[in-house]
Design a protein around this nucleic acid. Structure first.
Lengths: 233, 233
DNA sequence: TTATAACTATGTTTTACAGCACAAAAATAA
DNA sequence: TTATTTTTGTGCTGTAAAACATAGTTATAA
């Protein structure tokens, strides 16, 4: 078991944006109820239909929020990086989860009971405003995504995904290699296409010297080109 | 009892969910800054790229929130009915509108300056909670929509749209006729398909006795069937 | 080590849907 | 009224992408 002081220091240092908004008494209670959990690669964090009870904060690793659709096909809705919050929306809407979450790579998740979070939101305006901004940002992204996924062609969708991955998880020291190693299947589920087509289109991009691929390592060589494809492809 | 202005009575009666959350002083200032505007059928209410300055509330009529995508194609993101609020999200995200809004039929819109709304959100917890719930609901719908639009086939998407129209705008006295008369093009933009395919698929549904069509009047005859198509089609 | 499963790669076939053309009907304007 | 534009309806064609098949390749387990 993790020491209480450690938990509090994580709240203070990692989740400072959230923590800083709390009053002293709130901080005490939040720290008491804060829990940390580890998830292995591919482990499910929560599933569709479950009751949303925790506000989660990704402290380490990478997480995908996804939705299973028609015929076993899965759609990745959004990607979470440290330090981002997730798992709370359905609670606000008083409904079970309509999405699921899983670790793309081994992940550390901090969590707080939603009823407690709601209680403090209702009396702490800074906290309320924090969630209004979070939700507003996510909603804007979701709306934009709907159009991108439905109207762009395969090349455009994959190009966009690669750029999103770069923006979201950044690159390694070389400034080119994406700092995330995703299975082709996940890349496909992110881009709304079949795995075969993700593989095929990656090959095309490689042939056109837009990217290089080494297993799951992807380097973006010609970002400008990728942006053009994303916009018009 | 003091006689209220027309504007104030609209706030009190039509926008009661919002109004009831305000303190007396807030009510006074809100009433002072409340404006009403009329829009003709097909008139644009706001456009992508504009600065979001008003919280809008649809008092009468029907409004579509849409986004122009690749090659002049348009995607309807959500539909607004009285009394629903819209136009505020982008302001919270401190960005220009990423969507546009237009009247499907002649509409009356009440509006309030966003800076004022923000000011009150920051000191009125009930108001903050109101927007947290609104945003949460919209985000859940948007995420579900992404999957529906990308994974379902044409028949499934149109079936779903018809059901959404029924849930959203209801039916006339006969219990069957959708209470909204949309152009085929709008129906197509709502369902992510071409106008031709919307027309064709409507014809198919008619032949299969699932609906009847008379111009823009649509009656849902076999809702059960429509649900099945929406789910598995 | 070998065996087994999971992932990646690529070629072939099928099909759902967009794109286009054109006509009829309805709405709107002159 | 007639003229003109907009909307609706159908048939035809082409193609993007799914579905399928099969094989090589890399992990994981026994």
């Amino acid at each position: 078991m993790v020491k209480k002081s450690t938990l509090e220091s994580i709240l203070q240092e990692e989740m400072s944006d959230f923590w800083a908004l709390l009053e002293n008494e709130e901080k005490r209670v939040i720290a008491e109820n804060f829990k940390i959990q580890n998830f292995k690669k591919n482990e499910i964090i929560y599933s569709e239909g479950e009751e949303p009870l925790q506000l989660m904060c990704l402290l380490k690793g990478k997480v995908k929020i996804y939705k299973d659709g028609v015929g076993g096909r899965s759609q990745i809705i959004r990607l979470i990086r440290p330090v981002q919050y997730f798992g709370y929306r359905a609670y606000f809407s008083r409904e079970p989860y309509v999405t699921a979450a899983a670790a793309i790579e081994s992940a550390t998740v901090g969590s707080l009971p939603m009823p407690l979070v709601e209680k403090y939101i209702r009396k702490n305006n800074g906290l309320a405003w924090f969630f209004i901004k979070e939700l507003s940002n996510d909603l804007g992204i979701s709306d934009a995504r709907t159009v991108n996924l439905t109207q762009k062609h395969i090349r455009g969708r994959l190009a966009e995904s690669l750029l999103v991955l770069k923006e979201n998880y950044g690159v390694e020291e070389d400034g080119l290699t994406l700092n995330i190693y995703m299975a082709r299947e996940d890349l496909a589920n992110l881009s709304n296409m079949t795995t075969s087509n993700a593989i095929r289109t990656l090959s095309s991009f490689t042939n056109e010297k837009i990217i290089t691929v080494d297993g799951r390592r992807i380097q973006i060589i010609d970002e400008e080109r990728l942006r053009k494809i994303s916009k018009f492809g």
